[in-house]
Nucleic acid binder design. Structure first.
Lengths: 135, 135
DNA sequence: AATTCGCTCATACTTTAGTATGAAATTATC
DNA sequence: GATAATTTCATACTAAAGTATGAGCGAATT
């Protein structure tokens, strides 16, 4: 979508430049180097911009993947909350304090998400979350 | 260093193209669009290439940082061994089995590397190791 | 209305992790 | 060769993590 627009714009700019040159270069032949330089700069920027937008797309695709995998595993919202804090290195007690819950609740969510992720402890859960690109 | 060379080459290419054009465009005026297109393409590629090499440099700098920090923290070989297995989600007992050591030794190394990394538990150690890009 | 699901909390228990301390053997390092 | 750092193991302890089970509540679904 966006790349098509950019392509159209760049083509328009090129044609505009060429037409402008067609009119002018009979009068000022010696300024050709300047025009060539302008074209070079414009398209150098365009090239850089294309590279940039290409990587932006890569990121978007990666983010979409995350969402799909997130929903497929079937972690509930609270389980995701706990997993996120867990992945940041917090203890159960710290997670309980942050979420205003009892440590018992955190342990329940922990055990449940361990089952869903098919892991034995929080370290493995962290690795699995990273592997599945949940965050 | 490398960027200077690339800059020189690109300037040389530009000058070559311009000189070539100077000679030719008296004979074939109507092919100017072609030359402009060639310049555009060449510099588009150059722009993309610059963007690419710019990110390569970023990576190199990051990698150098890793090495410096690795050596500055001063983890011993055994501590690194334990940290590596720890970062792969293994329990102390499993690490002991893999390294043919007692679980007591693993705990000693663990405590020591926690002090050196300034962390409280293995989850935080894992994050720190990732942050410092030890592996 | 009944059922399912997610969230919460609790008790009781087992297992694992982590700390403190000491000590002996090995290996670098000066 | 003496000193310092590393590696290994041990005991004893505290703290945290993890499991099993049950139960109450509310919201959504059938």
């Amino acid at each position: 979508m966006k790349s098509t627009i950019v392509y159209g714009i760049s083509m328009a700019v090129l044609l505009f430049l060429l037409k402008w040159l067609e009119v002018k270069y009979l009068i000022m032949d010696n300024l050709f180097e300047l025009y060539a330089g302008i074209i070079a700069i414009v398209f150098m920027v365009l090239g850089a911009w294309f590279m940039y937008s290409l990587q932006q797309k890569k990121q978007e695709i990666a983010e979409k993947k995350q969402i799909i995998q997130n929903t497929e595993i079937g972690l509930s919202q609270r389980e995701l909350d706990v997993l996120e804090l867990m992945s940041q290195g917090y203890s159960n007690q710290q997670i309980a304090d942050k979420l205003f819950l009892s440590i018992h609740t955190i342990k329940t969510h922990s055990s449940n998400l361990f089952l869903k992720l098919d892991v034995k402890n929080r370290t493995q859960a962290l690795l699995k979350a990273k592997e599945l690109e949940i965050f």
